[in-house]
Computed example of a mutant assay.
Amino acid sequence: MNKTMHTGGWLRANKGFLMFLLLFGVFRTAVADWNPIPSASMRPNLLEGDVVFVNRLAFNVKVPLTDIVLQHTGEPQRGDIVTFSSPRDGTRLIKRIVALPGDTVEMRDERLIINGREARYERQDTVGDSMAAAGQLQAQRLSERSTASPARQIQLLPQVPARRSFAPVTVPAGQYMMLGDNRDNSADSRYFGFVPRALLIGKAERILVSADILDHWQPRLQRFGMKLQ
């Protein structure tokens, strides 16, 4: 009896804090979220140690903690950076949408072709980069401009084996093709297939904070608040 009264008293005394935790949880699972970048698959635009703001209402309203879509709120576009659950194992991933439902897409020697139109590429720079399985590498950075989407930077690693070409495929209704910007070091739709709309979590809109995980977590202040393109 005393234990029950004690518990009830604690709940009453802390109901405001508990309500805050509940609302905060709903906010993160239904409205907005942040996503730490754990891998190199989106270099050079996203770096390990970046934390990005994710708008969960950009495309869908979902039942919290589920993939049940209640309402569509916007249409994903080519070039959007999005978070989603992997159709292979449910892991949360972050990639770029390169093709929409109904698009016919192929890749020839790293060059994207969407609906018969080849993306335009401009060589920008060669930089040193590292990859756990291959050590220090030379990365080629290029500007890529594809059908109806703005130019973005991508990165190629010519020294490593990668899936650089695939035959034309048509994206099914309600699904999307995802690629990492670090094309030769990204597990994406070339490996796990198209992503159904119900698995989209939200649109990554900007970098909240960033720290260099290889340099004692030193803040990268120039990246704070950076809008994603």
Results as ranks from 00 to 15, higher is better:
residue 53 F to G: 09
residue 40 A to G: 15
residue 174 G to Q: 09
residue 3 K to S: 11
residue 184 D to L: 01
residue 145 R to V: 09
residue 170 T to W: 00
residue 97 I to V: 10
residue 102 G to Q: 10
residue 63 V to Y: 04
residue 111 R to F: 08
residue 17 F to R: 02
residue 220 R to K: 10
residue 142 L to Y: 14
residue 62 K to P: 07
residue 207 I to A: 11
residue 8 G to T: 05
residue 68 I to P: 04
residue 83 T to Q: 06
residue 71 Q to C: 11
residue 19 M to F: 11
residue 172 P to E: 08
residue 42 M to N: 15
residue 95 K to M: 01
residue 101 P to M: 04
residue 118 E to P: 03
residue 5 M to G: 13
residue 6 H to V: 04
residue 185 N to G: 05
residue 96 R to S: 02
residue 166 F to W: 14
residue 1 M to S: 14
residue 55 N to K: 13
residue 73 T to I: 01
residue 151 A to L: 00
residue 79 G to E: 00
residue 205 E to W: 00
residue 162 A to D: 09
residue 211 A to P: 01
residue 150 P to D: 07
residue 6 H to T: 10
residue 133 A to N: 12
residue 223 R to T: 00
residue 117 R to K: 15
residue 84 F to I: 07
residue 46 L to M: 03
residue 31 V to E: 04
residue 108 R to Y: 08
residue 142 L to R: 10
residue 118 E to W: 00
residue 225 G to F: 07
residue 18 L to E: 05
residue 228 L to Q: 07
residue 85 S to N: 14
residue 219 P to V: 03
residue 17 F to L: 13
residue 190 R to M: 06
residue 34 W to R: 12
residue 213 I to Y: 04
residue 8 G to K: 13
residue 11 L to W: 06
residue 33 D to E: 13
residue 177 M to N: 02
residue 190 R to N: 09
residue 68 I to R: 14
residue 55 N to T: 12
residue 104 T to E: 12
residue 118 E to M: 11
residue 213 I to C: 05
residue 145 R to T: 15
residue 5 M to F: 14
residue 142 L to I: 05
residue 57 L to A: 08
residue 167 A to N: 11
residue 120 R to S: 15
residue 202 G to H: 04
residue 134 A to H: 15
residue 141 R to Q: 15
residue 79 G to Q: 03
residue 167 A to D: 13
residue 30 A to I: 05
residue 210 S to C: 00
residue 28 R to F: 09
residue 83 T to F: 06
residue 165 S to E: 01
residue 151 A to M: 00
residue 207 I to L: 11
residue 180 G to H: 07
residue 96 R to T: 05
residue 77 Q to N: 13
residue 170 T to H: 04
residue 28 R to Q: 09
residue 185 N to E: 12
residue 177 M to S: 02
residue 126 T to D: 11
residue 93 L to P: 01
residue 143 S to V: 13
residue 57 L to H: 08
residue 115 N to F: 11
residue 104 T to I: 08
residue 116 G to R: 12
